[in-house]
Design a protein around this nucleic acid. Structure first.
Lengths: 222, 222
DNA sequence: AAGTAGACTTACTTGCGAGTAAGGTCGGCG
DNA sequence: CGCCGACCTTACTCGCAAGTAAGTCTACTT
């Protein structure tokens, strides 16, 4: 409790190498940006949460904007990595899509801040920020589109022909649904990410499969 | 309407009754909030866009927060009204869901600002704001859940039993997919809201229908 | 015409938060 | 030791934007 000068660093000002401290700053920034949004986030709060003072943040990350961009880059890379690792396993596209989505839900459930930061920011100022957010979304979307496209190609023997545009459409629908379902998951803590994935596959994959098989829906009349 | 027969049409410094001016302020506010996000939006800009000066905004709406809340209330009421009007027509739940979703896409395509304001704001500060946004989302979700539930009940003759929880799940997936697809629509201006709705129904409704008929998807094997 | 109420403005005050200057502390190494 | 480079701080500046005080203008009533 009482701080000994050098024996047991219970909670003294730890002196950390830059590489470590930078990651801690990013950890704190993701939390605060996620909670408050970019504009309402206060750099002082991020610094305090990281256990240092504001000038360190500016020394290491340059500016609030640079800090945010670094967050988005790191977090989107993490999500894409999680998705890819799960989906890169062999097997049919169906199983790989399942694995990818399950990884997605698992990631979002466990790192909710990360997801909110990279996907739920208002289209606020800054060409730089807008571009970085767009890039992050695009990279996630590209992963999903790839898998969906593979699924379409596999089921391509039927009477319906679907192309790249359709894969993009389904990918958008899937990602949007997944995003919205993270809210649903919060109100249903009993449901595991895997269970949610199965539910989603039941609605969307079965639909796609049957469309490919020829069961096309069309507007009743009116 | 009728031009005053006095001086320049260049600067028509119109004097408007409060009820009218308030609506113009809200129109401007929705534009600016949508473009910049709540926190980055500047009241002066809203006032200028509405053709008046800042104190009028405060006189009529009380505060920036009050202004935002009023926007969210008005816009979400509009969207719900559009959805309800389309979906209240008779016919099978399937057709009503189609009509509701088509109205939704139509609304979002035509009043993009409105949608962005009520659904894409960061979870910024303010219990008041957070509550209002949550209420807006809930009212939209409730509409969709109702229709989906009706669809489930109609198809309830099959071997699979789905309940209120499942309707809520599907509604979340639908709304999220619809939200994300508004981005897709921006890159495919050729696709009408109706066409997008048909695509979405093909993926999701067909899936739901077949799940109800017994075609359950389950995870291949790990 | 004179009075009044409500629409509208200019010109502030105030606080907050991004960014910075200037320096403090600590460990290692000649 | 003494100094160097890294980590880290206190204590500012300064601009921007929320909110307001105090008044002006005009349409309408009597």
């Amino acid at each position: 409790m009482t701080d000994k000068p050098d024996d047991k660093p219970d909670k003294p000002r730890r002196r950390l190498p830059r590489s470590v401290r930078e990651q801690e700053i990013l950890d704190a920034a993701v939390q605060v940006f996620s909670k408050r949004g970019y504009r309402a986030a206060v750099v002082d709060e991020i610094a305090e949460l990281a256990g240092i003072s504001k000038p360190m943040v500016y020394l290491y990350l340059g500016s609030k904007e640079g800090l945010f961009v670094a967050c988005v880059r790191r977090e989107s890379a993490r999500l894409v990595a999680a998705f890819r690792e799960a989906a890169d396993a062999g097997g049919p596209p169906e199983g790989r899509l399942w694995a990818g989505l399950a990884a997605f839900f698992g990631y979002v459930a466990e790192h909710r801040d990360s997801w909110v930061v990279m996907h739920r920011q208002a289209p606020e100022q800054g060409e730089e920020i807008a571009g970085e957010l767009a890039a992050a979304r695009r990279s996630v979307m590209a992963e999903v589109t790839g898998l969906v496209g593979a699924g379409i190609a596999e089921g391509g023997g039927g009477p319906i022909k679907l192309g790249a545009e359709d894969a993009e459409f389904v990918a958008h629908a899937l990602v949007g649904a997944a995003d919205s379902l993270t809210d649903w998951m919060e109100r249903h803590p009993g449901e595991s990410p895997e269970a949610v994935t199965v539910r989603l596959m039941n609605v969307m994959w079965v639909g796609m499969r049957n469309v490919l098989a020829g069961e096309v829906w069309s507007r009743p009349e009116g």
